[in-house]
């Protein structure tokens, strides 16, 4: 399952890039699974995703809960809680 990931704000800074394509293993079924997989993958992932509760998710342009399934997803954005206004 190839996924196009996009990172924003301090997630982007800690990952050292704004986007990348990844091929997570088959047992990565939800956004939470993806966050845990990225955190375990390397040092930058460990820094960006050390606190999964502070990570928000959008799947194919829709804000979703972190328990959302990734089946059929193409684009996943991972970012901190928003602070506009």
């Amino acid at each position: 399952m190839a996924l196009q990931l996009a990172y924003f704000a301090w997630v982007r800074e800690r990952m050292g890039c704004g986007e990348e394509q990844v091929e997570p293993p088959a047992d990565v079924a939800t956004a939470s699974d993806l966050i845990a997989w990225l955190a375990a993958r390397d040092d930058r992932g460990a820094r960006a995703f050390a606190e999964p509760a502070r990570i928000r998710v959008a799947i194919d342009g829709q804000m979703m809960g972190n328990d959302a399934a990734l089946a059929g997803a193409r684009d996943v954005a991972l970012f901190p809680p928003v602070t506009g206004g």
């Binding site: 804000m63 928003v82 602070t83």
Partner: peptide, 10 residues
């Protein structure tokens, strides 16, 4: 818009 829109302040 402070909680629902994708914007981040630095």
């Amino acid at each position: 818009l402070k909680t629902d829109v994708m914007l981040w302040k630095r």
